[in-house]
Write a protein that binds this DNA or RNA. Structure first.
Length: 134
DNA sequence: CAACTGACTATAC
DNA sequence: GGTATAGCCAGTT
């Protein structure tokens, strides 16, 4: 792979690349994406990048990126509907169930191969051994 | 080049 | 848990 944009400081492209890694039916927060991109990237930059998607909005799963509280920051674009279509459950407050659909981040292998970082921790914990819905 | 804006987040009350 | 304020960074004017 000679197409490693690690030297490139194009935050937007890197952000898009990370967002594309979010699997179907999963969601990630702006902060998570920023952490994965690293290099001083910030949650707000992620929001700007997604806002500047333009035609790429068809190829980048921007709808899977939500805020820290699991709520939809952008209204009027049917983001919640799209997520529900993917099987993402929401609470009465309109917050997505982060505990059930929060993306745990890309594989360490992929992240290292592409010059990205992995989430420090705090994503989710197997503990509690709570019961499985099914 | 300085100031404002924005699909954010952490802390404080 | 909600509102209010500060901090944060890149892009735009």
């Amino acid at each position: 792979m000679t197409q490693s944009p690690r030297d490139e400081r194009d935050y937007f492209e890197r952000i898009y690349t990370v967002v594309e890694q979010v699997p179907w039916g999963k969601v990630a927060t702006y902060g998570d994406i920023a952490t994965l991109v690293g290099d001083g990237c910030d949650a707000r930059v992620v929001g700007h990048a997604l806002g500047a998607l333009g035609a790429r909005s068809a190829t980048v799963p921007w709808q899977r990126i939500i805020n820290r509280t699991g709520g939809i920051s952008l209204t009027g674009h049917g983001q919640r509907e799209r997520l529900e279509e993917e099987g993402v459950a929401f609470d009465d407050r309109g917050n997505a169930r982060m505990d059930a659909h929060h993306w745990s981040g890309p594989s360490e292998e992929w992240a290292r191969a592409n010059g990205f970082q992995t989430l420090p921790r705090t994503a989710e914990k197997p503990a509690s051994a709570q019961l499985r819905l099914f």
